[in-house]
Amino acid sequence: MGYLNNLLAEDTQIVTAIVPVDSQAAANNGDWVSLKNYERCTIVLMKAAGVAGDDPVITVRQAKDVSGTDAKALNFTRIDAKVGVQTGIGTFTTVTQAAANTYTDAASAEAQGLFLIEFDAEDLDVNNGFDCIQLQVPDTGSAGSQLIAALYILRGAKFAGAAAASAIVD
């Protein structure tokens, strides 16, 4: 119960993965973040309504450092989503898929969306030195603009301190 008295910045690190951008402009490769000092990372992707056929493809990779050394797929099976007018959706819908490092919600192009994908540090290939993750959202097409933005929320700081440790350095 002691963590309830901590400030968010004391045991949680929030890192911008993808700044607000028109997803049709180019490939959107998020920053790499390190889980060395954290037990868990939640990827939060937000998107505005776009046009039919421009469904975002969510891809997650893992690497050995924050420069992306030896990057490879990081599979996941669960996605929690709110697709539709966000002020009218009170709970997440859990979607499960076969293990893959990519997810596409084929109904989200024309709707607002909020997607969560969570990883424990041990979900990475830690035996081979992988401790960093990256979100990628490729160009969604040229049919129309669609604003996206994403955050990494790292929790379970392994070391106590006045501020949570940086996740953008090794």
Rank of each mutant, 00 (worst) to 15 (best):
I89S: 10
T94V: 14
K64V: 04
T94C: 05
D55I: 04
N75H: 14
K72H: 09
S67W: 01
D55L: 06
S67G: 09
A100P: 00
D70L: 08
A99Q: 03
K82N: 02
T69N: 06
A99R: 06
G68Q: 05
K72C: 11
G84L: 13
Q97G: 08
T87C: 08
Y103A: 12
R78G: 06
T96K: 14
L74K: 01
D70W: 01
D80G: 05
V57E: 15
T102Y: 00
A98Y: 00
V83M: 12
I58S: 01
T77R: 10
G84S: 06
V57R: 15
S67N: 11
S67F: 00
T93Q: 12
D70H: 08
T91E: 15
V85R: 14
N101Q: 13
I58E: 01
A100L: 02
A98F: 00
F92E: 10
Q97W: 10
V60A: 05
T77M: 06
K82A: 10
A73S: 12
D80P: 00
I79M: 11
I58F: 10
V60N: 07
K64Q: 12
A63I: 04
A63W: 05
L74D: 03
A98Q: 11
T59A: 14
Q86V: 03
T96M: 09
V66W: 10
Q62M: 12
G84R: 03
G88S: 14
V57D: 14
A71E: 15
V57L: 15
G68K: 06
A71Y: 03
